[in-house]
Design a protein around this nucleic acid. Structure first.
Length: 256
DNA sequence: ATGGCCACCGAGGGTGGA
């Protein structure tokens, strides 16, 4: 069973890349963030043609999350973690005996922004939701773009005064993890842990990145994980000839 | 070696991303 999280930065612009990814890597569950399209523009037929079904929570222009899967989704919750009803940042469903929860956490912009307060409030709601989900489901994994750097070693440049790295953000993530979740990250020697690189300044080329895309597994889920991979090759222009423009994030996969 | 901002809306440049 392969489970992947990937912030694609527009599902329609990235559609050729996503279809190639499904074909090349054959994930069982692919969780996407930043769809940036309304429900009627979501390319569900293309995913069905590729042998997958999809559930999605969409809004025009911003945000949006979906779960693309080989098997059928049950117990679907559309946007269970929500402050503003217009903001579609969460979706959850059960596949077999595994509960999958997909988040696109608020970015927050900067520490003195109102969006930062919104981020912390959103994370507080997420914690309450996950507490209940963990009571209900033994095998559970919460994945997504968390927009939080868990540890100093997960950032090329770690600055506590900067968004993604502040103490309050990391404490909010810690509170979520302490509910009974385990970060499924497994280091690879001679390879950075990063999952996101800025488009600007040749950041990917220089490996100036951050690990902000996470898969957090319950204990019973974590014990089944055999492999963890960041598929950095999707970040190269040459990887997908139909669409050389890549997402700024790489897909992160676990296999269990 | 790879890459050197991108995508949205809307009609141009402002906004958000991280």
């Amino acid at each position: 069973m392969k489970i992947v999280t990937w912030n694609v930065n527009s599902v329609n612009v990235r559609l050729p890349n996503i279809l190639k990814y499904l074909s090349d890597y054959q994930p069982d569950i692919l969780c996407l963030q930043e769809l940036k399209c309304s429900e009627d523009k979501y390319p569900v037929e293309e995913f069905i043609a590729a042998g997958y079904e999809s559930i999605q929570s969409c809004q025009k222009t911003y945000n949006g999350v979906s779960i693309i899967s080989k098997c059928k989704a049950k117990e679907i919750e559309n946007n269970p973690v929500c402050i503003d009803k217009e903001e579609k940042r969460s979706i959850a469903a059960t596949y077999g005996d595994i509960r999958i929860i997909n988040f696109y956490v608020v970015n927050g912009q900067s520490l003195n922004s109102e969006k930062y307060i919104h981020k912390l409030n959103w994370l507080s709601k997420a914690e309450k939701y996950l507490k209940n989900q963990l009571i209900k489901y033994k095998k559970l994994i919460v994945v997504g773009d968390f927009n939080i750097v868990p540890n100093e070693s997960d950032a090329y440049e770690f600055c506590e005064e900067s968004i993604l790295c502040s103490l309050q953000e990391r404490e909010a993530l810690d509170s979520i993890i302490k509910l009974g979740l385990i970060d499924s990250y497994i280091p690879v020697s001679d390879e950075s842990p990063y999952t996101w690189w800025d488009y600007r300044g040749g950041a990917f080329h220089r490996d100036i990145g951050y690990r902000i895309d996470l898969l957090l597994a319950s204990k019973d889920m974590h014990s089944t994980i055999k492999k963890y991979e960041v598929h950095k090759r999707t970040r190269h222009k040459s990887w997908c000839e139909d669409q050389p423009k890549t997402s700024d994030h790489a897909p992160v996969m676990i296999e269990c």
